[in-house]
Nucleic acid binder design. Structure first.
Lengths: 151, 151
DNA sequence: GTTAAATAAGACTAAAAAAGTCTGGTTTGT
DNA sequence: ACAAACCAGACTTTTTTAGTCTTATTTAAC
C-alpha cells in the first residue's frame, strides 16, 4: 500500500547523487546507473522530465550530462512528484477533466475523498526535497566537515 | 498517482452508510451495493475484514447484517487502511520481513524513504475516520481553498 | 569529416498489482 | 426445509507500472 512510483525513487536517487557534486560538475545517466544499479532508460527519462520542468539543465553531446538548476530547498516533494508522474488524486473522479465514475450523484464519499486529497497534497507540499535528502546524513556522510581535521 | 485502494473506498462508503443508521440497526451488503453500485463480492470481503479486525460485528443467517462496533472517532484512517490493505510502506524494502532490493548497501535514499514512510504513517494516523466522513455533509467543493470556513 | 559519447523521445513488451468474478460453503430466521 | 444472509478461497480480467528497443540529435575529440 502507498508505494511511491519508481520514477520518484529514481529522481531522488539522481538528485541526491548530483547534490554531492562540485557546483557546475555534470553527471551522466550512465554514472548513476552504474553507481546504484538502476535501469538506464527509465532513469534517463526521469531526468529528461526534470529538465523539461526546469529542475535540471542538460548538456548534450560527448562530455554532456545533467546539472541541478534550482535550489532544492525551494523544491517540494509535491513539485517533484508532479514533475515526474503528474498530479496527485486519490480517486479517478478527482482528476481534473477525467471521466466520471458510474456512481456519480449517489456517491456518498466524494467530499471526504476530496478533503483527503487536499490534505495529502498539502502534506507533500510541506516536505522539501533538500530536507528529505539530508535525512540521516550523519550515518552515511560523504563530506563530513569534521573529517578535515584528523583521522 | 497516489490512488487509494478501492478496498478503502468501499470501507469508507460502507462506514458512512452504516453511521447514518439507528444504533443497533443492521446493514446488509446487498443494501450497500444497491445504494452505491459497488461490487458485491469486493464490498463483502472488505466488510468481512473489518469484522475480523474488530471494527464491525456481523450477524449471520437470514435477517443478518453488519454493525459498527467501535467508536469511529477513535479509529484513524491508518487503522482502516491497515485493516483492509495492510501496512503502509513506500518501497518494498521497507516492508517488515520482505525481500531486500538489489541495491542493498549502495542505495543512497533508503534513509530518506524510511523518513518519508514514517511521516506518511503519522499523517494517516492523525485523521479520524469519523472526522473524515463528516466532511462537507452540506455540499462538496473539491478544491475550494475557503471551503473549511463553513458557508 | 568521422567517430564516439552523450542526451531526447516515442513505441513496444513484460511484469506486477488491483479489481472483479465464480464457486462452494456456513449460519439462522421463518 | 428453505431462503437470506455472511464467509472464504481460488480464479480471471483489467489496469497500471516498469522496463526495453529503436531511432534520432547534439557535440567534443581525433
Amino acid at each position: 500500500m502507498n508505494k511511491i512510483h519508481r520514477k520518484v525513487e529514481y529522481a531522488l536517487i539522481s538528485l541526491k547523487h548530483m547534490k554531492q557534486k562540485q557546483p557546475g560538475q555534470l553527471t551522466t545517466v550512465k554514472e548513476i546507473c552504474r553507481a546504484y544499479g538502476c535501469s538506464f532508460d527509465a532513469t534517463s527519462r526521469v531526468l529528461q522530465m526534470m529538465v523539461q520542468k526546469g529542475l535540471l539543465k542538460s548538456e548534450q553531446g560527448a562530455q554532456g550530462g545533467y546539472l541541478i538548476l534550482r535550489d532544492l530547498k525551494k523544491v517540494s516533494l509535491l513539485d517533484l512528484i508532479e514533475m515526474v508522474v503528474g498530479p496527485i488524486s486519490v480517486v479517478k473522479c478527482l482528476d481534473t477533466g477525467k471521466e466520471q465514475c458510474d456512481m456519480e450523484t449517489r456517491c456518498n464519499v466524494i467530499a471526504p475523498l476530496a478533503f483527503l486529497n487536499e490534505q495529502i497534497v498539502n502534506f507533500y507540499r510541506g516536505i522539501s526535497v533538500d530536507h528529505m535528502l539530508s535525512v540521516s546524513d550523519r550515518k552515511c556522510a560523504p563530506f563530513e566537515p569534521m573529517a578535515l581535521g584528523g583521522m
